[in-house]
């Protein structure tokens, strides 16, 4: 059984009188445990709506979303789903509940009634995992964007999730902050946690095992970074190529030839060396 399964999921919402926006139209795919999936598309492609279907914040207007076999329509299991699938949001300032960092991390476990001693253990462990232990007593407002997002990740980790969904969690950060969050995401993925990263940063998407591309609410591409960036569809979806891929293309115009699609800098360097040395 796949860990995440979408069967023909659609989502529409109303704006004003009689107008409906069809944010998602019959999307189907499944994700196995431990995958690192980037979900991408331009603004308005439906990617953030899709993210919110994955932990029952939205329920599909048609079709089904199953998390570890539990249908997100099953209201009695909503909290089970949200414990399994944690979510880190876009704006670091709008997802912290408490002023003091350790209190914020404890918020989730407190909500589901974990005993006190265990909360303390989980908070210690979660802050350690994101490298924020020394900040535990500090005030959230004094942190950098990257640090705030790491605290948000710790808050999700304290729920011991199987899946973490990053809903454009790096888009408001500076490059340092982005790198911090990507590093943490990869580290957690290495421990077996499934990562779904919603992003329009192609450098980040290129680091995933798999990229799913949405356009106007439909799934248009689904494959490895090499497959996706080789497709002429990418730019039609309003996406850019990663800088390394772009450069490979410029070199191809100048007489170079790469045996496979370049997705990152190291691949590009290898490809160039093979042709020049």
């Amino acid at each position: 059984m796949p860990q995440i399964e979408l069967n023909n999921a659609s989502y529409s919402y109303r704006v004003g009188e009689g107008q409906t926006v069809r944010a998602l139209r019959g999307v189907s795919f499944s994700v196995e445990k431990g995958e690192f999936v980037a979900l991408t598309g331009m603004n308005g492609s439906g990617k953030s709506t899709l993210a919110k279907l994955l932990n029952g914040l939205f329920t599909p207007s048609a079709g089904d979303v199953l998390i570890e076999g539990i249908n997100t329509r099953d209201e009695e299991r909503t909290f089970d789903i949200r414990r399994k699938a944690g979510m880190v949001f876009q704006n670091p300032d709008n997802q912290m509940v408490a002023t003091v960092i350790e209190d914020d991390v404890a918020f989730g476990p407190e909500n589901v009634g974990i005993p006190r001693e265990e909360i303390v253990e989980r908070v210690d462990w979660a802050l350690e995992a994101v490298g924020m232990s020394e900040f535990r007593k500090r005030s959230a407002s004094k942190l950098s964007g990257g640090q705030k997002q790491r605290v948000a990740i710790a808050g999700v980790l304290a729920m011991k999730p199987d899946i973490i969904i990053f809903d454009e969690s790096t888009s408001m950060l500076d490059p340092e902050g982005r790198a911090e969050i990507m590093e943490v995401a990869k580290k957690l993925n290495a421990t077996g946690i499934t990562v779904i990263s919603i992003t329009h940063n192609m450098d980040e998407a290129a680091q995933a095992d798999r990229i799913i591309v949405l356009r106007k609410g439909r799934l248009v591409l689904d494959g490895t970074p090499k497959e996706v960036f080789a497709s002429p569809e990418v730019e039609a979806c309003g996406l850019a190529l990663p800088p390394a891929t772009e450069l490979a293309r410029m070199l191809t115009e100048r007489g170079f030839a790469f045996s496979e699609t370049v997705t990152d800098e190291d691949g590009l360097v290898e490809g160039i060396c093979a042709q020049l040395n």
Binding site: N55, L57, G86, M87, F89, Q95, F107, G155, M159
Partner: peptide, 9 residues
């Protein structure tokens, strides 16, 4: 949304 996602009740 963030509070809901963290099982607030």
């Amino acid at each position: 949304f963030a509070m809901d996602a963290r099982c607030y009740n």
